[in-house]
Nucleic acid binder design. Structure first.
Lengths: 156, 156
DNA sequence: TTTCATTATTTAACATGTTAATAATAATCC
DNA sequence: GGATTATTATTAACATGTTAAATAATGAAA
């Protein structure tokens, strides 16, 4: 009956996890990798990681932002963010200072060198995204974004 | 005009990257995180990372598999896989030996202790997935998987 | 105002992601 | 058959992911 299994096994199906190729976690991972594969080489030419670019970009979008807010927007865990901030500050792309009203908070701001990066990388990034969107279809991208958002907020 | 911007900026929109909240890379990341958030605590109770579980699972699905094939199926880069294999072998969950026909290749096989893990974790994993699928809708999961696969194979 | 709980960030420790380089074996070419 | 090239896996070096614990500052309660 032309079963589509990838390979034979000696175990009955009932004892096995469902097929790995049709599982959401791996499918999401693959899709994300495919998308980032288009951006990464360009970012690498500018000596930026994906996460560093997200941080700079959000500072350009939102102005001054504290670390907690940044962690939420960029979807980066606090310990990673600490390291990324240190690195970006050492490179002079962002500036960091304590909040005067709340000594626990760290406020982040983009530096002139960071704005220069935005000016250089931004157009390239948008061009890549536009190409991707055109290939996949703008409405399908919208539909996909909606579904992904639903999935992400299932429990909320 | 009720602009929906998250916060004010002094820069004109044209110079900014498009809004971070509606970008595929972050949306895929968020969705994946939300999904894995359901599995990770359970896997942690069995002292397994997500990646280790994928490797064991694929060996249970596919029997003997070489490292290259495993890297493709589990979507894990070779250097990570090397470390994961070492760890799983030290824990006795898998066995590893050189291919007699091709001395470069490493063949992987699940060990009895690994089968025990499959028997313990498999049902829990399937239960979590089933709940997720029920919440999100089986057809929508299928549609999402199709779209993700399309996205992942855009350039192919 | 001293104490206690809470919140924001950092550090620690380990696992994985990422790219480049290396070592070992196979395959190809002359 | 010997040099060259390609393939497979590992190692190296650095960045990020992940959880837990430590620090530091704030806010609330006693």
């Amino acid at each position: 009956m032309s079963r589509q299994k990838t390979s034979a096994t000696s175990e009955p199906d009932g004892l096995l996890p469902h097929n790995t190729r049709r599982s959401l976690p791996i499918a999401l991972l693959r899709a994300r990798e495919a998308v980032m594969g288009h951006f990464r080489p360009m970012l690498a030419r500018h000596e930026l990681t994906e996460q560093q670019w997200r941080v700079i970009r959000i500072l350009a979008e939102s102005g001054q932002v504290d670390a907690t807010e940044m962690a939420e927007k960029a979807f980066i865990l606090a310990p990673s963010l600490t390291r990324i901030i240190r690195s970006l500050e050492e490179r002079g792309l962002i500036s960091k200072h304590k909040d005067a009203d709340d000594g626990r908070r760290v406020l982040l701001e983009i530096a002139p060198a960071g704005m220069k990066v935005i000016a250089e990388v931004g157009p390239e990034s948008r061009a890549i995204y536009a190409t991707l969107e055109a290939k996949f279809g703008k409405e399908r991208v919208e539909k996909l974004l909606d579904m992904l958002d639903d999935l992400a907020t299932l429990g909320v």
